[in-house]
C-alpha cells in the first residue's frame, strides 16, 4: 500500500508535468507547509483581544520570575506555550500579548513563533494528532500508521476534519523511537501503534475520551517485548551468601 506521502508526491509530480510541458522552465514554487507571513483573517487578526486567564497570569509571573529582568525576553517561548495551551493555537493576538509582557517589539516574538514548528499559527482541531515519520518510526511502519489515520479521518496531513475534531500533521522524531511507531495527541504519546490500535485510539478521541497514553502493545515502557532475557533469576535478598553472623 502506498503511503499517503508517496501519494502526495506522485500527485504533485503528475500535476507538474501536466502544467508545464516545457522541461526547461520548471520553477514550480517550492513552499513549506506553513506560511511565514501573517494575513489578517476573520478568526486571526490583531483586533481580536487575548489575555491570560487569572491562573495563567500567575503561571506567567512564575515563568518571568525565572529570568533576570534584563533577559525577560528569554520567557518568550514558555509564554507562547502557555498562550497556545489556553487558546489552542498561537494567534497573532497571543504573540502581541506576549511581546507586551516581555517588553519587546512584536517582531521578536513573531520570529520565535515562526521558527518553531510546534507553535500552530493556524487554528487546529480539538485533537491535534502528530504522527512521527522520522526514520526509526518509518522503519517500524509509520507510513502505515499515517495512512490509517488519514483514511480513518478522511483528511490529508496538514488538514483538519470538517467537524473540527482532528488535525493531522506529520512531525519529526519525538524522542520515543524505542516505542516506534508513535503519535502524539494533545501532549500525550501513544506508542507501539498498529493500524488497529490507532483506529481504536482515534475512535476514543472522537467520543471525547482520553485513552491511556503510553505503549499500546501491553508493554510498560520500552522493555523487551519478548520478555526478559537477562537477570531472570530471583535477585538474592539482603544477607544471602553472607556469613551466618551477618544473616
Amino acid at each position: 500500500m502506498l503511503a499517503a506521502r508517496a501519494a502526495r508526491r506522485a500527485a504533485f509530480a503528475a500535476a507538474r508535468t501536466a502544467v508545464c510541458p516545457r522541461p526547461l522552465s520548471t520553477s514550480a514554487c517550492r513552499r513549506s507547509d506553513a506560511l511565514f507571513v501573517h494575513r489578517d483573517t476573520e478568526y486571526n487578526n490583531p483586533k481580536i483581544p487575548f489575555e491570560f486567564t487569572p491562573e495563567n497570569r500567575k503561571k506567567a509571573q512564575t515563568i518571568l520570575s525565572h529570568y533576570p529582568p534584563q533577559y525577560k525576553k528569554a520567557a518568550i517561548i514558555p509564554l507562547l506555550h502557555l498562550g497556545q495551551e489556553q487558546l489552542g493555537w498561537t494567534s497573532i493576538s497571543v504573540m502581541n500579548y506576549v511581546a507586551k509582557l516581555v517588553e519587546v517589539t512584536p517582531m521578536r516574538v513573531y520570529e520565535v513563533a515562526t521558527f518553531y514548528t510546534m507553535f500552530n499559527r493556524e487554528p487546529v482541531g480539538k485533537n491535534f494528532v502528530q504522527v512521527c515519520t522520522t526514520t526509526p518510526c518509518m522503519l517500524r511502519g509509520s507510513n502505515e500508521i499515517l495512512d490509517t489515520v488519514c483514511t480513518h479521518l478522511g483528511v490529508k496531513p496538514g488538514q483538519t476534519t470538517p467537524d473540527g475534531k482532528f488535525t493531522v500533521v506529520e512531525v519529526e522524531c519525538q524522542g520515543a523511537c524505542s516505542n516506534a511507531p508513535m503519535m502524539v495527541v494533545h501532549d500525550d504519546f501513544y506508542e507501539d501503534l498498529t493500524p488497529e490500535t490507532t483506529r481504536r485510539l482515534l475512535d476514543a478521541f472522537a467520543k471525547g475520551e482520553r485513552p491511556k497514553s503510553g505503549p499500546q502493545s501491553g508493554r510498560h515502557t520500552s522493555e523487551n517485548s519478548a520478555g526478559l532475557t537477562a537477570l531472570t533469576s530471583k535477585p538474592y535478598g539482603p544477607g544471602e551468601h553472607c556469613q551466618p553472623d551477618f544473616q
Binding site: 511565514f36 507571513v37 497573532i92 517582531m107
Partner: peptide
C-alpha cells in the same frame, strides 16, 4: 525594530510578518 526574519532554514525570509 519591526524588520526581522520569519521561518527557518531554507524557508527563512525577511519581512515584518504582518503587513
Amino acid at each position: 525594530e519591526d524588520l526581522g526574519t520569519t521561518g527557518r532554514g531554507n524557508d527563512l525570509q525577511i519581512g515584518m510578518y504582518v503587513e
